Computed example of a mutant assay.
Amino acid sequence: MNDLSDNDLSGNGLPQTLLAGYRNFMSGRFTDESLRYRELAEGGQTPETMVIACCDSRSAPEIIFDTRPGEIFVLRNVANLVPPYAPDGEYHSTSAALEFAVQSLHVKHIVVLGHGRCGGIKAALDSESAPLSPGDFIGRWMSLVAPAAEAVSANTLMTSGERQTALERISIRYSIANLRSFPYIDAQEKKGHLTLHGAWFDISTGELWVMDRKTGDFIRPSSE
C-alpha cells in the first residue's frame, strides 16, 4: 500500500494536527519501542493496573504516570465515576470495562484518578446550569453524586474552589465504595488479590495526591 501524501490526507476528515502527531509517534516512540509493540500484538496485554480516569483532555493517566504501552488498562468517563453494580440488562460501558479488567485481565490494582477543575464536578455543584441537550446525559450521569453535591454546596463557609476540590475528592471515595458493590471485585479484594486506590491530580501544579486507604484522607506521596 502506498503512503498517503498530505494532499491525499486532506480530504479524509482527520485533523492535520493528529496526522502530524502520528508521524512523530511512528518516527519516535513506535520506533524506539517496536519490539514492545510486537510482543503486545502477539502475546496480548497483561496490565496489572486499571485506571478509571476522567475524559478531560488535561488529565491523561498514560502521561501522568509516564507508562509504557500495555502497562495500564484505562477507562475514561465524565468525572471518573463508577456507578453501583446494576445487572439490569441495560448498556453499562463502565461495568463492562470493569468486568473485563478484573475477570479476564486479572488486574491487581484499580485506581480511581480524579483531577482538579473537573467540568463534570462543576456541573454537579451548579444546580442552576441548563442541560447541554434535551437528553441531559451529563446531568443524569452526575446525579450519581447528587447527595454529596447538595451537602457540599450547602457549606457557605467554603469558597467555590474549596467546594469544587472537596467534591472532586469525595466523588473518588464514592466511586471506590461503588466498586465494592460489584460481587467479583469485593471477593477479589477480600482475598487480597485486588487493591483499590484513589488519587487526585492537580492540573495547575502537577501535584498528585493519593488517598489513604484506611482514613480516606488525601496526602502527597514522597517525591523521592
Rank of each mutant, 00 (worst) to 15 (best):
N12S: 04
I63K: 15
G70A: 02
S129D: 02
G13L: 07
A187P: 01
R29S: 15
H92C: 11
H109Y: 10
R36G: 04
I176G: 01
I63L: 14
T165L: 00
K122N: 12
W200Q: 08
N77G: 13
G44H: 05
T31S: 13
F218N: 05
I219H: 14
S57G: 07
L113F: 04
E207K: 13
C118Q: 07
K190N: 04
G21M: 08
D32W: 05
S95A: 15
L9S: 02
A101H: 11
L208K: 00
E90D: 14
R36K: 15
K214H: 12
S133P: 06
T205W: 08
L167F: 02
N77S: 08
D202I: 09
K108N: 13
I63T: 10
I219K: 12
S181N: 02
A101I: 10
A149V: 11
F218E: 11
E189M: 06
R29G: 03
P47W: 05
R173K: 14
S93Y: 08
L75W: 03
C55E: 04
L19F: 00
G28A: 08
T165Q: 13
T205C: 03
N155C: 11
T49D: 06
F25N: 00
T205A: 09
A148H: 12
A166N: 10
G135L: 15
L194S: 05
Y22M: 05
D8W: 00
D126A: 07
R117D: 07
Y37L: 08
E42F: 11
R36T: 13
N24K: 11
A166F: 03
G216F: 07
H106K: 15
S222P: 01
W141G: 05
S129G: 14
R58P: 02
D56V: 12
P134Y: 03
L208W: 01
F100R: 01
A199Y: 03
N178G: 10
V51P: 06
L105N: 03
D136Q: 06
P183W: 08
M142I: 15
G139F: 02
E62N: 13
A187I: 06
D6M: 00
D8Y: 04
Q16R: 14
A123N: 14
T205S: 15
L19A: 03
P84L: 12
D32S: 09
R117L: 13
Y22I: 00
S143M: 02
G192M: 07
H193F: 09
L144N: 05
R68Q: 14
A123Y: 15
V107E: 02
N12A: 01
V51D: 11
G135H: 12
E168F: 01
V102Y: 06
Y184I: 00
A41M: 10
T94V: 15
P183V: 09
Y37R: 04
G114R: 07
A53T: 09
